[in-house]
Amino acid sequence: MRSDSYTFKILRYDSTEHDREPYFTSYRVRVIPGLTILMVLLRIRDEIDGTLAFRSSCRSAVCGSCAMVINGKIDLACRTQAASFGTDTIILEPLPNLQIIKDLVVDMTPFWKMYEKIKPYLIRRNQNPEKEIPQTEEERKRIDQYVNCILCASCYGACPVPSKDPDYIGPAAFAKLERFVLDSRDERPKRSLEAVNDDKGVWGCDMVLRCIDACPKDVRPTDSIVGLRKQLLKYKSKKIFSMGKDED
């Protein structure tokens, strides 16, 4: 099989060594067609440098562990082929907008905090699981793209807002919220959307669509933001309308 020698420049940093700034280390690795970035990383850690840190698990683009910046583009290391860039020098950096713990491993705490904030679970008034809650296939398909989200934080890393406002909820959490709002079985009160009705919420989005571009699973978080904005406007107009009636 054909193989070529590639240079991998990998950002190194250790949060326990405060006095040392991030730096790059270069590794030469032979690349055969089909070899993924994750396989390269595993080989470097096994054979060249046992101190290299990165997250990985499923190696099949379903677990969301290995999102990183690969030659300037955010993607999962496991589904990106080393030979797909038309260059034999590849730069690997950790996801932006999150603090580095070590090398390519970032602290996902802010990401999960925002996820938890939007109440990411089905809300039902009655729990009576004797039978399934009926749902049409069309209703289920409505939430399909959001269900596909693997919470890899690629979108969060690509979004320009969190760096300006760390309290911004972010694309993945909005997609998750819309997944439940659109679910025919969910009974969360409309007023609960007020929690995202500000600049930290859906109105903070700059609509530059980088999240859509970064998503490895074809989720379109911007669709969810537009959807939630519409819901909020509808709720607001209803509220004004009913308040008017009250005054009568």
């Binding site: 679970y121 039902r124 729990q127 009576n128 399934e132 749902q135 049409t136 296939e137």
Partner: peptide, 12 residues
């Protein structure tokens, strides 16, 4: 049924 009630989006 329990998983469905907790939100699992099964095909229908």
């Amino acid at each position: 049924y329990e998983m469905e009630h907790w939100g699992c989006p099964f095909s229908r």
